[in-house]
Amino acid sequence: MELAARNSEHSHSAYRKILLNWRVRLKSCLIVDDSRVVRKVACRILNDLGFTCEEAENGQKAFEHCKSKMPDVILLDWNMPVMSGIEFLEKLRMMEHGEEPVVMFCTTENDMNHIKRAVDAGANEYIMKPFDSDILKSKFVQVGLM
């Protein structure tokens, strides 16, 4: 009797675990920006939208991150020390599985030449700073992440 109860309890918790993993596989977002403040703000908004966030302060760090773990989506600044956003994107799209993440630029560069160059390099969307949660959300909906 006791054993049976324990077995059932065990299978119940195992089942719950599977269910949780299956249901709540949150999408992951890598936020690449040299400003800690921007990373925090973006992270807070994205957490509210149901994404897990990791951060990188430049293109090089982001590239290292992607080598070990490819995120579902990358929010990418343009101007950063060490490696810029556009350099990172070009390298990312050459990597194995590097075509998989949705890449969304998020930068103060707001002229057509920059936007064209980003799209040509494989960016899926482009956010011009300053941004707010409405813009971020509408862009995520647009590319089918939500």
Partner: peptide
């Protein structure tokens, strides 16, 4: 405005 075009307009269509 930049705010208005970013609410809903996909970047490819914006270009």
């Amino acid at each position: 405005s930049q705010f208005e075009v970013q609410r809903g307009m996909p970047v490819q269509l914006l270009l």
